[in-house]
Design a protein around this nucleic acid. Structure first.
Length: 556
RNA sequence: GCGCCAGUAGCUCAGCGGAUAGAGCAACGGCCUUCUAAGCCGUGGGUCGCGAGUUCGAUUCUCGCCUGGCGCGCCA
């Protein structure tokens, strides 16, 4: 039950009726009836500018049209009152009986309230984080992890099947460089002289990896005489080590991937060269100066991109095409990538490649997780793996906790730059918005503990509508009724921050209701009615918080 | 030079083409003998970067500027 959609349907139906009765010309049925939230609640729960937008067509004043339509709308039992306001807005008030029925529905559905079934679920591949396995996960990865996981939760909740996927860049120069860096550190550990590679990874963590590997694989290291083979060996072990750490960090962050897709495996099984051939066969590439170029300009890119270098080695881009071709072959209906800000320049070329591979444009989305400015004591902290000065996702979890971190990341829209003040987040954690939500949840749980203690037999079926017809209760019920549509909106637009905004308002509504009304009293029916409303608020709060991957404590 | 993202309250940010632009934090003033005060109520605080255009109507859409951040490898 999605109230906003229902309202939209009711309006469309009213228009059709008016056309049938000869009041409106029939072209009007083509006009889309938009439904929006009025700014001020005195303008109703929903409003439609339909009369304003169809005035020219109908050749009547918006106010007249509105008055006409209002009669038809008011016939629906879900609508309590319809008003037409100055320029021509039609303001719609939801009926109390609908709100009350919905309240019982929320309690009945429990954890499923807000879920939308989908007759044809889409198979979705959501790739996110995909950090290089050359070091610990950083703050931008944490942001992508929080937002990506929440988007996946939202899509699942709205009826899609989602596979969470992590692309492991375990191939190429960066990996070799890591191997060389580790080798240098191992030699240092062993008291020998070594030249640290130029552009090598200088972070302290490389020493930790070196120490770990030197100990675990001492025999193997000693046995390999050839320097390049040794670097390869160390690179492989270092990547495995980093990957394990990354996995652990993500699990501690409540993010679990179904698939860890190895770039190396893609090369090993020949998929990369196959992708080259597919593009060549479709005449989507050409050779020039010994290099193979993809005709990406045919698909909207600025310039053609190199797929194979003149020495025969494939580029990262070609591997990425092969990877996405593999995703297509695995039969996904919708493919979403979340990338870091440093990759946004690659958007056009990969979109071009997807088009060239015949995958429909609207089913492929690249979202960019914009940069995070990490502030410490008011100062920007530079984050660079190679410079070795950066703060990790692990630090973040340890310092402010999973709940606060996830909430903060999801709170802002993904494509906005984010200033994250670690010191502040930690210091002021008790005044954090996330606690505001959790507190509302815990408070309701506490109410029920109290009710049980006092022997109140709670049965939501015994609650009564008339006992909830006050400002705070009705306001809260209205907001609860909007949860399914908010969830659907957030899912369709990949905007999980809408959920945090919704939940803040829910918590506010509950706290206000709680302050104004004493829930448990001598009046049994009143108590049960208020408990039912609290129960519904708890259900929605719990469902919403769960979508964010944040915990909903029963006691604080 | 080109591209991406942003510019809204002191700070961090919401605002799906609509009505008097909001929240959190910060500041100030009230509210606990009674179900959790991590709460509630109130006050102050804005030329929505600037200029045009489209529209009945623009913070929202288009274009042009200005400012800030990032990216512009045949690295991954």
């Amino acid at each position: 039950m999605n109230l906003k959609n229902e309202i939209s349907r009711i309006i469309a139906h009213a228009v059709v009726s008016a056309v049938e009765d000869g009041i409106f010309p029939k072209e009007v049925s083509q006009v889309e009836a938009k439904v929006e939230y009025p700014r001020d609640q005195k303008f109703g729960d929903y409003a439609t500018p339909f009369a304003l937008e169809s005035a020219k067509l109908i050749r009547k004043s918006p106010l007249e049209i509105g008055a006409c339509l209002a009669k038809y709308l008011a016939a629906d039992p879900r609508i309590g009152k319809v008003e037409v306001a100055k320029p021509g807005f039609i303001n719609i008030f939801v009926s109390n009986s609908f709100l009350f029925n919905n309240l019982k529905e929320i309690i009945r559905q429990g954890a499923d309230y807000g879920r939308s079934g989908n007759i044809n679920p889409r198979r979705v591949n959501l790739e996110f984080v995909s950090a290089n396995p050359t070091g610990p996960l950083n703050i931008v990865s944490a942001r992508a992890a929080a937002v990506g996981d929440t988007i996946a939760n939202l899509l699942e909740f709205t009826g899609d099947e989602v596979d969470r996927e992590f692309y492991v860049n375990d191939y190429g120069n960066q990996v070799a460089l890591l191997g060389a860096s580790v080798l240098a550190r191992i030699r240092e550990l062993r008291g020998g002289q070594s030249v640290f590679p130029e552009d090598g990874y200088q972070g302290e963590y490389v020493k930790e990896i070196a120490a770990h590997i030197a100990e675990t694989f001492a025999d193997e290291i000693n046995a390999i005489g050839d320097e390049n083979r040794l670097i390869d060996f160390l690179a492989e072990k270092s990547v495995a080590y980093n990957l394990e750490q990354q996995k652990k960090d993500l699990e501690d962050f409540n993010v679990r991937f179904k698939t860890w897709y190895s770039e190396r495996a893609l090369h090993d099984k020949g998929a990369v060269l196959e992708a080259r051939d597919i593009l060549a066969q479709g005449n989507k590439s050409y050779t020039e100066e010994g290099k193979v170029f993809f005709r990406s300009t045919d698909y909207g890119d600025d310039k053609d991109r190199v797929l194979v270098r003149d020495d025969g080695r494939p580029t990262y881009f070609l591997a990425d095409i092969a990877y996405h071709n593999d995703k297509i072959r695995r039969g996904y209906d919708l493919i979403i990538d979340i990338w870091g800000p440093d990759h946004h320049g690659h958007r056009a070329r990969l979109s071009a490649a997807m088009k060239a591979l015949g995958f429909s444009e609207e089913n492929f989305n690249i979202l960019i997780a914009q940069q995070v400015n990490l502030l410490m004591d008011g100062e920007t902290v530079r984050m660079s793996k190679r410079m070795g000065r950066f703060s990790t996702m692990r630090d973040l979890i340890n310092e402010i906790g999973v709940d606060v971190a996830r909430y903060f990341f999801v709170m802002r829209s993904l494509e906005s730059h984010l200033d994250f003040d670690l010191t502040l987040a930690k210091k002021e954690s008790s005044e954090n918005p996330v606690f505001y939500l959790q507190y509302a949840h815990a408070r309701i749980c506490s109410l029920f503990r109290e009710a049980r203690k006092r022997g109140v037999a709670y049965d939501p079926g015994e609650s009564r509508r008339e006992l909830l017809e006050n400002e705070e209760s009705l306001g809260l019920m209205k907001h609860l009724a909007k949860f399914p549509e908010e969830v659907l909106d957030a899912a369709r637009k990949y905007e999980p921050h809408r959920i945090t905004t919704y939940l803040m308002k829910l918590a506010q509504g509950f706290h206000k209701f709680y302050t104004e009304h004493r829930i448990i009293t001598e009046d049994r029916e009143q108590s049960i009615s208020y408990l039912a409303l609290s129960d519904a608020a708890r259900v929605v709060m719990a469902n919403g918080i769960k979508l964010l991957g944040v915990s909903a404590p029963e006691m604080m």
